[in-house]
Design a protein around this nucleic acid. Sequence first.
DNA 1: GGCCAAATTGTTTGCGCAAACAATCCTGTT
DNA 2: AACAGGATTGTTTGCGCAAACAATTTGGCC
Lengths: 340, 340
Amino acid sequence: MVRQSRKGTSPTMADVARLAQVSQQTVSRVLNDYAFIKPDTRERVLKAIASLDYRPNMAARTLATSRSRTIGVVASDYLSFGPASALFGVEQAASEEGYGVSIVSLRESNRETIAEALARLVGQSVEGIVMISPQDVSASAAFLSFDNVPVVTLSSVDTGEHTSIMYDSVEGSRAATQHLIELGHKWIAHLAGPAGFTVSESRIHGWRKALGAAHLVAADPFVCDWTAESGYLGGKQVLADPRFTAAYCANDRIAQGLLLALHEAGRVVPRDFSVVGFDDVPEAAYCIPPLTTMRQDFTKLGRRCIEALMVRINGEPPQEADPLLPVLIERSSTSRAPLP
Amino acid sequence: MVRQSRKGTSPTMADVARLAQVSQQTVSRVLNDYAFIKPDTRERVLKAIASLDYRPNMAARTLATSRSRTIGVVASDYLSFGPASALFGVEQAASEEGYGVSIVSLRESNRETIAEALARLVGQSVEGIVMISPQDVSASAAFLSFDNVPVVTLSSVDTGEHTSIMYDSVEGSRAATQHLIELGHKWIAHLAGPAGFTVSESRIHGWRKALGAAHLVAADPFVCDWTAESGYLGGKQVLADPRFTAAYCANDRIAQGLLLALHEAGRVVPRDFSVVGFDDVPEAAYCIPPLTTMRQDFTKLGRRCIEALMVRINGEPPQEADPLLPVLIERSSTSRAPLP
DNA sequence: GGCCAAATTGTTTGCGCAAACAATCCTGTT
DNA sequence: AACAGGATTGTTTGCGCAAACAATTTGGCC
C-alpha cells in the first residue's frame, strides 16, 4: 500500500491520477469503462487504484451526473414475512442492477407520513421508489407528484398513474374457497383482513365469487387485522355458529390463531373443521395441523418491482408481465366436510 | 407555486436566493439554523423555499460537508422476526437522529461477501455500519478496517475492536433451562442452533450451566438450523429417547417444529412433554399449545445499535448500557414433569 | 510523404452546497 | 460624536466527479 498524500481523508481520483501519471479524467474514464483507453494506461490506473485502495465518492458522482444509482423503499410493515420477503427481493434485484437501496419505514400510514417519507427519499435523490405498504392510502399518496421520480407500489390497485405489482388476490381467494367447496363444505366462513387494505377487499370479493358461483351463501366476513390474535378472536365468533364447517382466512397468521381457537374448543382439524390460509409463510407447514394455504412468492414480487422501476427509469416502453397467481398448497388442515 | 427558472431540474438554493432576494449563503444559513438571521429575512427565505417546493440536494451537502447523514445496514437474514425487528429499530432510531438508512443484504455470509457489502456501504460514504448478521464470520469480517467508519454488530462476541450489542444468551438460556428444572424435569433435551453462530454456542453453554448446577446430565444437543423443519426433524430424534420429558429450543421456530413432531407422535404437550422456546416471536403465543419462551426485544436491540453508533460517530466516550436480559414468558407448553 | 479519421489523452467547467473570510449594519457606550 | 463589538449579510472558494470540448497521437491509405 502506498501512503496517501493527504491524511484523514480517502484518496480521490486526483491522487490516483498523480500516481498513475495521467489526468484525473482518464481515471474517471477507466472507472466508467470508456472504450478508448490504451491497455497499458488502463493497467497503470487500475494498479494505482488498487494500491491506494481508492473508492469512488458516490456523492460527488451523484452531484456530477445527477444519477444517484439508488432506489428508495417505503415500508410500513416489514416485520411480517410478506413485506420482509418483498424487501429482500427488491434489494437483491436492485443490487444486481447496480443500485443501492435506501429504506424509510412508516410507523403509521397516512397521507402525511407517507408524503414525508417520499420527500425524504426524493431528498436523497433516489431514482425510483418502491412502496411496500399495502394500505390503500399508500397508493393514493403515491400520486403526490415528486419531481419525476417513478413510484411502484405493492398493492392490488393499479391506477395507471403509477405501476402496481401484486398477486391476483381475487383469483387466489376464489381458488382457495373453491377448494373448500369441492371438499363439500357448504358454510364457509371468511376471516378477513382489516379495512383500508385493497387486498382485504379483493379476498372478500374472491371468496364471495366462489360462493356465488356454487350458489352458496356468504355470511358476513369476520374482520381481523392480519394477526394471529385477531384470528383467534375471530375464530371464537366463527365457532359460535355451528353451521360453519370450514373457514378461509385472509392470511396464514389469522389461520394460525383460528387453529388455536378450534383446538381450545375441542374441534379437531380437519376432521371437524377445515382451514385454508393465504401466503404460505414458513410456519404454515408446521402448524398443527400443517396448513393448507395459497402460496405467494414475495421475493419475486419484490424483483418485479425493480424490473418495473428500471423500465420507467430507463424510459423504456412498459412491458406486460405475466400475471402472478397464488398457488394452492394442500396440506392437512383441509378435508371433506363432515357429514351433517 | 412560482414557476421554476429552469425546467426539468429541481430548484436549487440559488433559485431560492434569487426569489428571496438574498445570497445563496443566507439560504444555506436559514436551512442550517444559523443563529443570526433577521426574522424578516428568514421568513422571506422560508416563503421562497415553500413556494418553489425546494428540497436540499443531499449529494451536494454530503460532498461539501463530507457527512452523509446515512448509516449502512448489512443484513443477512431479515426475513425472520428477530433481524427484521432489529432492522426496524435501527431505521427508527436512525431516522430520529436525522439519519437515513442504506441496506445491503447478504445471500450467503463469508468474508468475501461481507467485505464487499461493507465496501459498497463505505462507497456510499455511510457514517456508520450496523451488521445484523449473527454469524461468527460477520464479527470477524467487521475487523476489516474501512477508513474510519465505525461498525456495530449484533452478536454476542464483543471483541473491543468494534462494539457488539446483544441479549445475554447464556443467562437467558440458563434461565429457560432452570425453569424446566424447577418443574421437576430431569432429562432436558436441547435443540440447538447451527454451528457458526455464537448464539448457538451461548445457548448450549447456558443450558449446560443450568443442568450442571442441578447435577443433571446434559446429553448431546440436537443441532438444528433455526427453521421449524429442523425442529421437526430434531424432534423426531428427541422422541426416540424416552427419557426426555422436556426440551429447550434455541428459538421459537425450532420449538414450533418440535411441537408438531410431538403432536404426530401422540405426545400431549405439556402433559407428557414440556417445551421452551426462545425469542417470543408473534406466533409463539398462538402455537398449540401456546409456547413458553424467552422474550427478547429486537427493536430495542436495533435502537441500541444506533445509540452505540452515534456515540462513536460523535466521538463521545463510550458509555455503559445496562445489560439486556431475555425474560421468561410462561405459557402453556410447560408444566411439571410427568411422574415416572 | 501527406492526409483523413479514428484513437487516446488532456483541460476546463459546473453540479449544489457549506466553510472561510469579508463587509456592512446596528446597538449602546464613553 | 466617535467607537467597540456584536449582529447580519455577502463573496469566494473547493468538495470529487463527469460532461463538454480541445488537443495530440496513431494507423491506414493513395
